[in-house]
């Protein structure tokens, strides 16, 4: 990983049954980590791509997504 910042571990958790499928998290994610599944609810499609910016968590109106970042 050339030019990568300090290594960190990102834990992304989804409380799926609270999701109403508004799609805000999917649209705001800069790395296309999230997508809506066939039921229109959020799912983590690319967990490894997550940079832990927290935009999904801050803008989720339904308390569905939790982003925890641990510096290694």
């Amino acid at each position: 990983m050339a030019g990568a910042a300090a290594p960190k571990v990102v834990r992304l958790e989804v409380q799926r049954n609270w999701c109403k499928g508004c799609g805000i998290c999917v649209a705001l994610c800069p790395k296309e980590v999230l997508k809506l599944d066939e039921f229109g609810k959020v799912t983590v499609a690319e967990p490894a791509a997550c940079i832990g910016c927290g935009r999904c968590e801050d803008h989720c109106p339904d308390f569905v997504i939790s982003v925890e970042v641990e510096e290694k």
């Binding site: 049954n17 609270w18 109403k20 499928g21 508004c22 799609g23 805000i24 801050d58 803008h59 989720c60 109106p61 339904d62 308390f63």
Partner: peptide, 13 residues
């Protein structure tokens, strides 16, 4: 939860 607010409503934010 889930709360009563509509999908996409900003109140939860």
């Amino acid at each position: 939860l889930p709360h009563i607010w509509c999908p996409g409503c900003g109140n939860g934010i």
